[in-house]
Amino acid sequence: MLPVTYYLALSAVLFIMGALGVLIRRNLIIMFMSIELMLNAANLAFVAFARFHQAVSGQIFVFFVMTVAAAEVAVGLALIVTLFRTRHSVDVDDVTLLNG
């Protein structure tokens, strides 16, 4: 069995990739995918720690996170589609009506 640090390292790398993706990429869909990557990095950490602690609750949390992610997708994609209809673009640099 691999030690938990390996899983933790992978999940940290995935999380940082996701966070950087949100900050660097300009395409709304890809930013959105990066956010999902962050959530899934957390899921991986949950499962690894659940095995490490022999606590099944960690695996159950993953289901909660997945459900919430699905709800976020529903709202987020609806917003992105509405934006695409009015502006014909999903580039975040075109979303600059409010500049703060």
Partner: peptide, 16 residues
Amino acid sequence: AFSGGFLVYGVALVFG
């Protein structure tokens, strides 16, 4: 959603 990602990863680490 971005901040939600931070929160849930933090929860995972506290759980760990």
